[in-house]
Design a protein around this nucleic acid. Structure first.
Length: 572
RNA sequence: UGGGGCGUGGCCAAGUGGUAAGGCACAGGUCUUUGGAUCCUGCAUUCGGAGGUUCGAAUCCUCCCGCCCCAGCCA
């Protein structure tokens, strides 16, 4: 295994063991499987990976890594009508991006021949039979949650007849739905999964990998456990809803008496506030055009988070912090945001960008003069060095950083007030210029030449520091401000497709005409920055030479916004 | 008396009979050329509820309550 090794990998650390790691640790200590650990991540290539999958990916790859084991990637591609190579490729890309590399790459579809043989063996043993009931009839015979089912009239079909029928199913002699192969278990079981489950169905559909070689396809329950077994998986980790399937998983492996019998262990899947996490709903958002694609930065998909500017490191840290347990839970998205902020604070270079510019003229600064001032690239990391930022007579600052009539606790620029321009000078506002409608369109200021670099020789202090951009040197850019996709914490809890009603109409705000320092002229797509005092941003692939485009990953913690809010609610 | 799970602070989550870790959030304070970051402090007399066992219970027993999953020829 060769994933990005982290400083805080378990092993020798003082971290707690979650119940799965505790179990693996005990199995290894007890010499089970010869002390070998083998896991796998088994997605169906029918959609894009999301942050919930990241939890499973981190678990499987990390557990293997922590015990010197292996972790495979296996595509559970047993339903030709839903799967596509586009999804397969996206899944591989996203796992690698997250920082993991699988030991072996497998496909359930490569096991079709072996799986067919296992099915034939079950028929010979009298443990499976071809059933010719219709889908509706099978449902009817299955009984209900509280009433036992009834035996299919085909349940005692002679072995030879089932064998013949199964062969002919494979040969394409029957139409979809005419027959099905069923395991012969117990129609009265309290566990509905054990009531003679279907293990093969006829599907005259071409498979994205197997082409038209097959017209019968194995079902998940049958395929999954045997695939795990054939791969020598020791611990088969999956989500809670498969708990009821474990007896069936075990039944197949026991009846077929295979060498390797993996232990299935279930854990709770991840739910995040203000988003939805089901592939079906995400697909619907894409298909209905409610977002711009699987990689829309508002999506909880890994490709969406990547485009949003999330780092793989921050997602891994997040997965580590939320833990693994069996109770259904809903993690606050603030926890995810905390993880990126923490990572980006350490690694993102600082730059100055004005998202909602207002002109500032420094009246006592010479018209034709330009200075290059030194700015620190990252105060958290001196090794990232410094850069030069041009300063001139005409600048832009953030419109929100000026108030003609400043409220209490507003420390920024106001008439007669002196503030610092970061890395530049102290300036004092001397007046405003209005347009015909009376709106302030320009600020007039003076600067103190003695404060070059941002500190006053006389020890004079100012209460705030503003970011700014020199107008003649500014790069014009587009900035996309993203917010949560839904207005409700748990849109998923709405019945049916009710979640759509809670889409946040303000989840995307496009700002054009933003002004940035020259360092932002031609960013590489995916390059991340902290716009000082504003937030973390990433260059979007839509960027062009003439017009860079940035996506807001997450805002900085904003104490002023909080004060403003409490001031407002205090009823002034 | 269908089967299978789960209940620890606002949100995650350790804890497995010896007297409630940690993270997020929140609230104060420190520091600061980002109202960022940092650092400090506070934040469950109590573990769904009620009984019981015990010197001692979130942990063991009994009963009760609540929530989630399962009746695809999906995974």
């Amino acid at each position: 295994m060769n994933n990005g090794s982290r400083p805080d990998d378990r092993g020798s650390s003082d971290r707690n063991y979650d119940f799965i790691r505790a179990r693996v640790r005990d199995d290894v200590a007890g010499g089970k499987n010869g002390g070998r650990v083998a896991t796998r991540f088994p997605p169906e290539p029918n959609g894009y990976l999301h942050i919930g999958h990241a939890k499973a990916i981190c678990l499987n790859f990390s557990v293997a890594d922590e015990y010197g084991g292996t972790c495979n990637l296996r595509f559970d591609d047993t339903n030709p009508t839903k799967e596509d190579v586009e999804y397969e490729e996206a899944i591989q890309r996203d796992i690698r991006w997250l920082g993991f590399e699988w030991d072996d790459l497998f496909y359930a579809s490569d096991y079709f021949e072996a799986l067919y043989d296992f099915a034939v063996r079950l028929i010979r043993m009298g443990k499976a039979y071809v059933c010719s009931l219709s889908a509706d009839e099978i449902r009817e015979y299955r009984g209900t949650l509280t009433a036992p089912g009834r035996d299919s009239p085909y349940r005692n079909r002679p072995v030879e007849e089932s064998l013949d029928l199964f062969q002919r199913m494979r040969d394409g002699e029957f139409a979809d739905g005419e027959h099905v192969l069923r395991a012969r278990i117990d129609m009265a079981s309290g566990n509905v999964n054990m009531r003679d489950p279907t293990i093969y169905r006829i599907r005259h559909a071409s498979h994205y990998r197997a082409g038209d070689r097959w017209c019968i396809y194995p079902m998940y329950d049958f395929t999954h456990c045997l695939s795990d077994s054939m791969e020598g998986i020791t611990h088969s980790l999956c989500s809670l809803e498969f708990e009821d399937h474990r007896p069936l998983y075990d039944w197949f492996l026991d009846e077929l008496d295979v060498e390797c019998h993996p232990q299935q262990i279930e854990f709770a899947r991840l739910n995040l506030t203000y988003t939805v996490m089901s592939k079906r709903k995400l697909l619907q958002l894409v298909q209905q055009g409610r977002v711009h694609g699987w990689d829309d930065p508002r999506m909880p998909t890994l490709s969406g988070l990547r485009r949003r500017g999330y780092t793989p490191e921050s997602i891994r840290t997040f997965c580590d912090q939320i833990g693994i347990a069996k109770r259904n839970s809903m993690v606050d998205v603030a926890q995810l945001e905390h993880a990126v902020r923490e990572d980006l604070n350490r690694t993102a270079p600082r730059v100055m960008a004005v998202l909602d510019p207002i002109r500032v003229v420094i009246e006592n600064y010479p018209e034709d003069r330009t200075e290059d001032l030194d700015a620190i690239n990252n105060p958290e990391d001196a090794a990232m060095g410094t850069r030069k930022v041009p300063f001139s007579r005409v600048l832009y600052i953030e419109r929100a950083d000026f108030r003609e009539d400043p409220p209490k606790k507003f420390f920024r620029l106001a008439p007669g007030r002196e503030v610092r321009l970061r890395y530049a000078y102290f300036i004092t506002c001397t007046g405003v210029v209005r347009d015909a409608s009376g709106e302030v369109v320009e600020l007039r200021c003076t600067y103190d030449p003695a404060t070059r670099g941002g500190s006053a020789p006389d020890g004079r202090r100012v209460k705030s520091t503003l970011h700014w951009v020199s107008a003649p040197h500014a790069v014009e850019a587009e900035v996309r401000l993203y917010d949560r996709l839904f207005t409700k914490e748990a849109p998923d809890e709405e019945p049916g497709d009710g979640y759509v009603a809670y889409l946040n109409p303000d989840s995307l705000e496009v700002r054009k005409g933003c002004r940035m320092e020259p360092a932002l002229a031609s960013p590489a797509p995916g390059e991340r920055f902290q716009f000082e005092r504003v937030g973390y941003f990433v260059a979007d692939p839509d960027s062009t030479r003439e017009r860079p485009v940035f996506n807001r990953t997450v805002t900085l913690r904003d104490t002023w916004a909080r004060i403003e809010r409490s001031l407002a609610s205090a009823g002034r």
